[in-house]
C-alpha cells in the first residue's frame, strides 16, 4: 500500500483512487472500507463506484461536482480509520460437485501435482477464497488464496464452450464461470448455483471483499439443489461472524 494515496484522472468523468501497486488482503480491506464510506456519504455527483484489485474507479458528473472538490471530499473519507473488518466478513458456501463430466480435468490436476483426486478436492475446499474484484465477464470473480499445491497451467487449447457454474484452475488462480463462455481453465467441478442471473436483483450475489468456500457435494445433492435453483427456492448459505451460518 502506498504511503500516500494517488488520485488519477481517467478522462473527464472518472477519478481513480489508487491504493497501491500489489494485490493484497490489506489493500482489499481498505478499498472495501472506503467504498462503504463513499456510499454512506452520498456525495452529490458520484454516479458509480467500481472497486478493483488495488484501486477504486469513481464515475462522476462534472456538471455536479468539480474534480478538485471530489478529491477533497474523497480524501476525508480515505483518511477515516478502518472499521473493524472482522464484523462484516461474509463467507459464501458454494456447493460443488467435483470430477467426472462436471470436472473433466480434475484427474489431470491431480496427476500434474502428484496428488490423488480426493486430495485435490480436500485442498480446494479447505481455503476460504477472497473475492478481490469482479470483471472480465458479468459475475466473474477474481479469487485469491489458492494453494500452490494444486496450481496447474491452463489448457493448451481453450474449450469453445464451458458450462455456466464450472469451477476451474488456471495457474495459481481458481474461479467460477458465471455464464457459458469459451475458456482455457482446467475444470475440476461445477456448482448448481446461478452465479449470474440477469433478471435477479442484484444479478450477482458476490461482492468484492466477500469470501467463497467450496463445499464438496454428491451428484444427488447437486440435482436436488439444481432443482431448487430452477424453482427459485434455493437460498445461498452464508457464514458471518455475528450470525453464523444462515440463508442469504
Amino acid at each position: 500500500m502506498y504511503d500516500k494515496v494517488k488520485y488519477l484522472p481517467a478522462g473527464d468523468k472518472a477519478l481513480i483512487i489508487e491504493f497501491g501497486n500489489e494485490i493484497s488482503i490489506e489493500i482489499n480491506a481498505k478499498i472495501r472500507n472506503v467504498v462503504k464510506f463513499i456510499n454512506e456519504a452520498k456525495i452529490e455527483g458520484i454516479e458509480e463506484i467500481v472497486p478493483t484489485y488495488r484501486s477504486i474507479q469513481l464515475l462522476y458528473n462534472p456538471l455536479k461536482i468539480s474534480y478538485s472538490k471530489l478529491i477533497e471530499k474523497v480524501d476525508i473519507l480515505y483518511n477515516k480509520p478502518i472499521e473493524n473488518k472482522e464484523d462484516n466478513i461474509r463467507i459464501f458456501k458454494i456447493p460443488t460437485l467435483y470430477g467426472n463430466e462436471y470436472g473433466p480435468d480434475i484427474n489431470y490436476v491431480a496427476e500434474h501435482n502428484h496428488l490423488t483426486l480426493e486430495e485435490v478436492i480436500k485442498i480446494h475446499t479447505r481455503t476460504d477464497y477472497l473475492v478481490y474484484m469482479l470483471g472480465f465477464t458479468p459475475g466473474f470473480t477474481y479469487l485469491g488464496g489458492m494453494s500452490e499445491r494444486i496450481a496447474t497451467p491452463r489448457l493448451s487449447s481453450p474449450r469453445t464452450k464451458i458450462p455456466a457454474g464450472s469451477v476451474g484452475i488456471a495457474g495459481s488462480q481458481t474461479g467460477m464461470y458465471p455464464s457459458e463462455t469459451p475458456g482455457g481453465w482446467q475444470l475440476i467441478g461445477r456448482t448448481p448455483l446461478r452465479l449470474y442471473a440477469p433478471n435477479r436483483e442484484p444479478p450477482v450475489f458476490l461482492n468484492a471483499g466477500d469470501y467463497v468456500r467450496f463445499v464438496s457435494i454428491t451428484e444427488e445433492e447437486y440435482k436436488d439443489i439444481q432443482k431448487q435453483v430452477e424453482e427459485d427456492n434455493y437460498k445461498v448459505k452464508v457464514i458471518t461472524p455475528e450470525r453464523g451460518e444462515h440463508d442469504d
Partner: peptide
C-alpha cells in the same frame, strides 16, 4: 499493470 477499471475512451 494489475488489472483495474476502464472507461469509454481509455
Amino acid at each position: 499493470i494489475i488489472s483495474d477499471g476502464t472507461v469509454f475512451g481509455s
